[in-house]
Amino acid sequence: MALGTDGAKTFTRDTNYISDRITTDGADGWPVEPGRYRLVVARACPWANRAIIVRRLLGLERVLSMGVCGPTHDVNSWTFDLDPGGLDPVLQIPRIKDAYLKRFPDYPRGITVPAIVDVPSGGVVTNEFNQITLDLSTQWGEHHREGAPDLYPEALREEMDEVMHRVYTEVNNGVYRAGFAGDQTAYDAAYDRLFAALDWLSERLADRRYLMGESITEADVRLFTTLVRFDPVYHGHFKCNRSKLTEMPVLWAYARDLFQTPGFGDTVDFADIKSHYYEVHRDVNPTGIVPKGPDLSDWLTMHGREALGGKPFGDGTPPGPVAQDELVPPGHGVS
């Protein structure tokens, strides 16, 4: 929490991440190598959900393994409580904190997901979530599946970066700014900023199927992971309650369009999402009670966005079925 210029208690995210990159040329000492690294995620986390989606859309499952933490954590970080014996089967550790400390014994900052771990050494390489997904697109190209979409088209990057920056500051982080505001002034300002941005996005998407035009890009991935959590969590838990997503016609149709696209909805675990926010954030929800609602069946209803044209994967193709060992558990998604 930080004080704003008006003295308001404004939520400020710690953005000092491990900035090492895994690149084709290995400039930071971490060259792209199939099988060497493990992406550690939690399906509950919107930042990690981005990486899950991008990895799946690009078909990197066979070269970049994935470890999945449970939905809750304590002060010592995310744990592998979903795995037999509570140990990640590849890294053989009970919590992701161990990989951070393996590389940095006195690591002083937050232990976050997504993180990419160097399997041979057991140490974390990076947790810079914004760069991780871009590098999966631009540095791992040799290992993309046939028909993988171009999620970061070079011709669109300047505009894309501006759009993604606004989505991050005003929406992805905006819901947290509202939810963790320390006083009424900070909350009111965060609320107004968030819904101003959602109104802007509604206008932008009114006559184009995706944020950058006719095809899905990284920008859509980044917005989707907040929208899919909006009604189950942010509307009530974070007091972002001017409107539900289902009451914002353009964004609701856009979100359903993406949800029904292979690679998006099949990565979403609503049970983990609700468990994480309502059980972990005891300063916001002291009882830890997880609400039963909302009804999620509408995510599979017709959205009508195909009338705007476009090709979701550009000149590419949809990803294949989710690997059996990476399926969202029965009852955790929408059926």
Rank of each mutant, 00 (worst) to 15 (best):
H73D: 05
K244F: 11
P329V: 01
V250F: 14
Q131N: 12
Y234T: 06
S77G: 15
P149W: 06
G147Q: 13
A271P: 01
T23R: 06
I289P: 00
R282V: 13
L308Q: 06
R109W: 12
G70F: 14
L134T: 15
Y37W: 07
I96S: 03
D106H: 08
L39Q: 03
F104L: 06
G304F: 11
R242H: 15
S243G: 03
A27E: 00
R166G: 03
E306M: 03
S121C: 01
N16Y: 02
E61D: 15
G70L: 14
T301D: 14
V175M: 00
E154Y: 10
L58Q: 01
M248K: 04
H165W: 09
D272A: 14
A148V: 05
L156F: 07
F224C: 06
A148G: 03
P286W: 10
H235R: 04
E218F: 08
R55C: 00
T138H: 12
R50W: 12
A181E: 00
I93K: 10
S19L: 01
G288F: 15
W47S: 08
R209Y: 14
P105S: 06
D188L: 10
A189S: 09
T79K: 12
L245F: 07
F104W: 14
L134V: 15
P31Y: 03
A271L: 11
E203D: 12
L258G: 00
V113E: 01
L91T: 04
A48T: 13
Y152F: 09
P108T: 13
V228T: 13
L223H: 11
V221D: 01
G122E: 00
E247D: 15
P249L: 13
L223M: 05
C45Q: 04
Y254S: 02
A189H: 07
G263Y: 06
D269E: 08
V113Y: 06
R204F: 08
L151V: 08
A206K: 14
H237V: 14
I96F: 03
A51C: 06
D283N: 09
T138C: 08
V322K: 07
L64S: 03
D257R: 15
Y100D: 14
V175W: 00
R36K: 02
N241A: 04
Q324G: 01
D81H: 15
F313T: 01
T261F: 08
D295R: 04
A190C: 06
N49G: 12
L258Y: 02
E159S: 09
H303E: 10
D83R: 04
M212T: 13
E162A: 12
W47Y: 15
H281R: 10
G4I: 03
F230C: 03
L58C: 02
V221A: 04
F270R: 07
I53G: 01
S275H: 11
L64A: 08
V117M: 02
G70N: 09
R222C: 11
R103Q: 12
G147E: 06
E218Y: 08
V163D: 11
P105H: 14
Q260I: 13
T226N: 05
V334C: 11
R21N: 01
R282S: 07
V221G: 05
C69H: 07
R145M: 02
